[in-house]
Design a protein around this nucleic acid. Structure first.
Lengths: 101, 101
DNA sequence: AACGTTATATCGTATAACGTAATAGTAAAA
DNA sequence: TTTTACTATTACGTTATACGATATAACGTT
């Protein structure tokens, strides 16, 4: 069985952010910047969020103010888990081949 | 100029393949399929190879037949090392947040 | 009160990366 | 001899991405 891989980094970072807890877009951005020192521009961020929502990996919750909090869905959690395992497989082989054990 | 997203998977897979030893395109494809069960189409493969060569991360070696063997450059090795470390940081945080230790 | 700054989100655009497929030639196998 | 596996190139349409412009609300400071 041939699987097409797609670990688009920004999407992953967003999912990982939501894996900790619910967050709205701006808070996701801050979380990512704080943890990895990666600053996503608004277009990048909200574009990725829209795609993730369309895929059903995250969903929006209601709120009173203009913030739109997102939550990882069950599907998103499964997807993220699979992806991270795949990626770890890749990095493990890579590290071995680089001689970095 | 568009910054490349840090784990542009295909490029990484190619670099990791070359981290083990020199390989020509088709052999890279087989290596990747064998190790991760990911089958790159020719356009994807050779397109990524061309970009990596342009970046100076790999270079082509001479050969007698029509095979074009590629080799990881010093720069490519450094780049790959950095990238893998970054990615491991991401997966580590992700796994923690998923509760998968 | 006025002003600047931070918080929050949407939309548009140009380009790069990707997937798919068509093409082509050479070598190996049946 | 015919077919299948190797090996690479090129073109095209789609999607993702980076980047920036825009908008509004809230907060802090002068």
């Amino acid at each position: 069985m041939v699987k097409k891989s797609r670990f688009s980094e920004n999407s992953l970072l967003i999912l990982i952010s939501l894996a900790e807890k619910e967050r709205h877009g701006y808070a996701i951005m801050e979380d990512i910047e704080k943890n990895y020192d990666i600053k996503l521009g608004p277009g990048t961020l909200y574009g990725a969020i829209a795609r993730l929502e369309k895929e059903g990996y995250i969903r929006v919750l209601e709120s009173e103010d203009r913030k739109k909090p997102y939550k990882l869905t069950e599907e998103g959690q499964q997807y993220l888990t699979e992806q991270l395992k795949e990626i770890q497989k890749v990095t493990t082989i890579g590290m071995k081949r680089l001689g970095l054990v």
